[in-house]
Computed example of a mutant assay.
Amino acid sequence: MIGALHAPIARQIQSLYEPLNFPVLITTPRTAEFIKYAANAFLATKYLFINEISQFVRIHRCPCQRGVCSTRNGSPDRRVFSERRSRLRGACFPKDIQALLHIAGNHGKS
């Protein structure tokens, strides 16, 4: 995702990503920022959900937790799946969720 105000700059940045063969979405900086916050908030939701399921699975001794939250290729989503994690990991989770809450608070949402 590229947030840029001017199309020539966006195309120049996009050309840097071409060798990586990643899909690129070009949008405004504000929209790119919001998409990042929303994506991380959704990932945090998945993380918290799967940790609750993992607890349930351990209590009931059901070895299915790796199949519950997997990536497109069927392998466990390492960002989400956890056997014994009690908090979100990664630099972006806490700050992005706080930023999203701040933005929501500024617009009368909580």
Rank of each mutant, 00 (worst) to 15 (best):
5 L>Y: 10
43 L>R: 03
51 N>G: 07
55 Q>F: 12
5 L>H: 07
17 Y>R: 03
77 D>G: 00
108 G>L: 08
76 P>G: 10
77 D>L: 12
75 S>I: 04
88 L>E: 12
90 G>R: 15
46 K>S: 02
75 S>A: 10
60 H>G: 11
100 L>W: 01
92 C>G: 00
3 G>R: 01
4 A>Y: 01
22 F>K: 13
10 A>M: 10
73 N>P: 02
61 R>Y: 04
41 A>H: 01
64 C>M: 14
90 G>A: 09
69 C>L: 06
11 R>D: 08
25 L>T: 13
110 S>N: 13
38 A>E: 08
29 P>E: 05
27 T>M: 11
37 Y>N: 01
50 I>A: 02
14 Q>M: 13
104 A>G: 14
47 Y>S: 06
100 L>V: 03
2 I>P: 13
23 P>Y: 02
108 G>W: 09
56 F>M: 03
72 R>N: 07
95 K>R: 12
53 I>P: 00
78 R>Q: 04
85 R>P: 00
89 R>V: 11
78 R>D: 07
24 V>F: 12
101 L>M: 06
59 I>Q: 09
49 F>G: 05
83 E>H: 15
15 S>D: 15
70 S>I: 11
34 F>N: 08
102 H>V: 01
61 R>M: 04
28 T>W: 15
26 I>N: 01
34 F>T: 10
106 N>R: 15
93 F>L: 10
65 Q>C: 08
84 R>H: 09
89 R>S: 14
36 K>D: 06
74 G>K: 11
8 P>W: 08
91 A>E: 04
4 A>H: 12
49 F>W: 13
6 H>V: 13
86 S>C: 02
18 E>P: 00
89 R>T: 11
63 P>N: 09
99 A>H: 07
32 A>S: 06
35 I>F: 14
8 P>M: 09
9 I>F: 14
5 L>V: 07
6 H>M: 15
4 A>L: 05
38 A>Q: 13
81 F>A: 04
105 G>C: 08
74 G>F: 13
31 T>Q: 09
52 E>P: 02
100 L>K: 01
81 F>W: 13
95 K>C: 02
75 S>C: 06
34 F>Y: 10
65 Q>G: 05
34 F>D: 03
15 S>I: 10
27 T>V: 12
66 R>V: 12
47 Y>C: 07
33 E>D: 11
43 L>W: 04
24 V>I: 15
15 S>Y: 12
73 N>M: 06
17 Y>G: 03
87 R>I: 11
3 G>F: 15
45 T>Y: 06
14 Q>E: 14
52 E>G: 05
17 Y>K: 05
106 N>G: 13
72 R>L: 07
55 Q>N: 09
13 I>F: 10
79 R>P: 00
89 R>N: 07
59 I>E: 02
87 R>D: 08
53 I>A: 10
69 C>W: 03
10 A>I: 02
88 L>T: 00
21 N>W: 00
32 A>M: 05
49 F>D: 05
78 R>M: 04
2 I>K: 04
78 R>G: 09
91 A>N: 06
7 A>Y: 09
19 P>V: 00
56 F>K: 09
42 F>V: 04
90 G>F: 10
